[in-house]
């Protein structure tokens, strides 16, 4: 393509490219660096906002603006929003679309058939996956250097926060519909990083599943960790107000955590670990 460009323009082009490369701190990948990136998944939204060069990210999903689900709702307000529909995404003329592995295959398939590069990211299920996601996003955006720096910071922060769960207090993750999470999940790993043993895992959960109320009561957890309450009402959340839980009284402390720090594998999981550490310190006092 550059062959058809006149000599002076070509010179200018090279200069711009060199500038861009310097900005992106990733000269070798610069040739394939996407310039118009659209993210259609809550988690890729946040990773892309954290890592993209100025102007590189064109749009994020509407979920990124939801302060209950997104740790970066304020930042997301600066980007035009999309609703993850193939038609509106294609109209943004992206050269890279970032999606989750659970994004509708109809959407990603259609975009690929239209010739758009689509990168999918799996939901992180542990701290190692969080690191890998950050690095993968860095590669996708041509921002490897920034991603490596972020991972180094993440590792250092996590190491400073991490506590040994082996002898720690026992906590149960307990959400609407008696849903709980075992240790092979990001939430379970956040719990472990904060130095808690997982009651859900003791009850046989490795991934997510139901932890019946009566099993929870008999397990005597030191701490019951729940998410925040959502507006409007639901029968699903009623179990969190069950009189039997209230009757546990001081035997099991309760902690409500902001879901936004737990949902996605981003450095914001450290905020969740920090909040749990504070809850743990409150237990031992």
């Amino acid at each position: 393509m550059s062959g058809s460009v006149r000599r002076s323009e070509r010179h200018k082009g090279w200069r711009a490219l060199a500038l861009a490369a310097a900005l992106m701190l990733a000269p070798p990948a610069a040739a394939e660096v996407p310039q118009r990136v659209v993210s259609i998944n809550l988690c890729t939204d946040q990773l892309a906002m954290l890592l993209a060069a100025p102007g590189q990210l064109v749009s994020v999903s509407n979920l990124a603006r939801d302060p209950l689900a997104s740790a970066m709702a304020e930042e997301a307000a600066a980007y035009p929003e999309n609703h993850g529909l193939a038609e509106e995404v294609f109209a943004l003329r992206p050269d890279l679309v970032l999606a989750g592995t659970y994004t509708s295959p109809a959407t990603t398939g259609l975009l690929r058939r239209l010739g758009v590069r689509v990168e999918t990211f799996a939901p992180a299920s542990d701290m190692a996956a969080v690191r890998a996601e950050i690095l993968a996003m860095g590669t996708a955006l041509g921002r490897d250097e920034a991603a490596r720096a972020m991972v180094a910071q993440f590792d250092a922060d996590l190491a400073a926060l991490r506590a040994d769960p082996a002898t720690g207090p026992r906590a149960a993750l307990y959400y609407a519909n008696s849903y709980s999470l075992g240790d092979k999940t990001l939430s379970g790993q956040i719990l472990a990083a904060a130095g808690f043993r997982n009651v859900g895992a003791e009850a046989g959960l490795s991934i997510g599943g139901t932890l019946p109320l009566e099993v929870l009561i008999l397990a005597h957890p030191d701490l019951i960790v729940s998410g925040q309450r959502y507006p409007g009402a639901s029968r699903s959340e009623e179990v969190l107000d069950h009189p039997a839980l209230a009757a546990l009284g001081t035997a099991s402390a309760r902690a409500a955590m902001a879901d936004r720090d737990w949902i996605c594998g981003t450095p914001y999981v450290l905020r969740a670990v920090r909040a749990l550490r504070a809850a743990r310190d409150g237990l031992t006092e």
Partner: peptide
């Protein structure tokens, strides 16, 4: 139409 994410499943 509920703002609650659990409501629709109910």
């Amino acid at each position: 139409l509920s703002p609650n994410p659990f409501a629709a499943n109910e």
